[in-house]
Design a protein around this nucleic acid. Structure first.
Lengths: 128, 128
DNA sequence: TGCAAACATGACGTTAACGTCATATTATAT
DNA sequence: ATATAATATGACGTTAACGTCATGTTTGCA
C-alpha cells in the first residue's frame, strides 16, 4: 500500500498522529506532500523511517541525535550532505556509542553477579 | 574527609546542590542527618553514591530505575530487602539491558560502515 | 444528499530532571 | 560584633517528547 494518509501510516508504524506531526514540526520527518485539499500523503518509506526512528530511540539517542544520522539510512548520500561535517558527527556518535557500550556491559555484569548472589541465597534458605 | 556539608559534597561529587536536594526528595539519596541547626551532614559514602548514580545514568537508566538497584551497591543485602521481589526486578533489568546492548551494537556497526563509506568517498575525491 | 469518520491546526497540559531566583537562617572570618 | 559566605526551603521556570482537548474542514458511505 503506497500513498496513504496519516491514519494508515500511524497504524502501520505503531505511533500516534501527534507523534508524526511533532516529528514533521521538528524536521525529523519530511511533511507528506499536501494535495489541494490540505491533507498529507505518505508512502512506505515514511513507515520505514518511523520504524527506524523508533529503533534508534531504543538505542538511547535523542530525536536531535537521530536527525543527525537518519538521512544515512534513507537518502543517497553521494551529493546531498556536507560530507566532512557529517563524518565528524558520525565519529562523535561512534565514540559516544563505545562509551555507552562499555558502561552498559559493566552494568550488565554487575546485575548478573547480584542475581547469582540472590539465587544462591534463596537456594540456601529454601524453607523461607 | 568525613562528615561534610553540602558544599564539599557537591564539589567532590561534581553535582549541584539542587541535584542533591532533588535526589533526597525522591528518596534516591538518604537525607544527610540534621544537627540541631537544620544543616545536613554527609559522608564519603554519599559521595560514592552520587558517583554511582551518575554512572548508572550514563547507562541510560532513569532515576526510578536506579532507585531499584542502587541499594545493591551500598547496603548489606542479607536481611534488608524482600529478596524475591528484588530478584524479579533485577532479572527484568537484565533483560532490558541485553536488549539495549543488542540495539546499541547494531547501531555501532551501522555507524562504522557509514563512516568507512564516507572515508572511502573522501579518499577517492581528494581534490575537493 | 446527509452524516459519521478521518484529517488539520492551535493551544494548553504533562513528566522527568533538574535550573534559577528569592528569602530567611546559620556559620565564619576579621 | 558584624559583614560575608554557606545553607535551607519554597516557588516558579525549562527542555524534550509528546498527550489531550477544542474546533473546523474533508472524505467516504448509505
Amino acid at each position: 500500500m503506497n500513498r496513504m494518509r496519516i491514519g494508515d501510516l500511524t497504524e502501520r508504524a505503531g505511533v500516534t498522529q501527534r507523534t508524526v506531526r511533532y516529528y514533521e514540526s521538528i524536521g525529523l520527518l519530511p511533511s507528506g506532500e499536501r494535495e489541494g485539499n490540505g491533507h498529507h500523503y505518505y508512502t512506505e518509506e515514511t513507515v520505514a523511517r518511523l520504524q527506524k526512528i523508533d529503533q534508534l530511540k531504543k538505542v538511547g539517542l535523542s530525536l536531535e541525535d537521530i536527525r543527525d544520522v537518519i538521512e544515512l539510512y534513507f537518502t543517497d548520500t553521494s551529493g546531498v550532505l556536507p560530507k566532512r561535517k557529517v563524518l565528524g558527527i558520525l565519529r562523535q556518535h561512534l565514540a559516544d556509542t563505545d562509551q555507552k557500550l562499555e558502561a552498559l556491559g559493566q552494568f550488565r555484569s554487575d546485575l548478573q553477579s547480584n542475581i547469582e548472589r540472590f539465587e544462591r541465597w534463596l537456594e540456601a534458605n529454601d524453607g523461607d
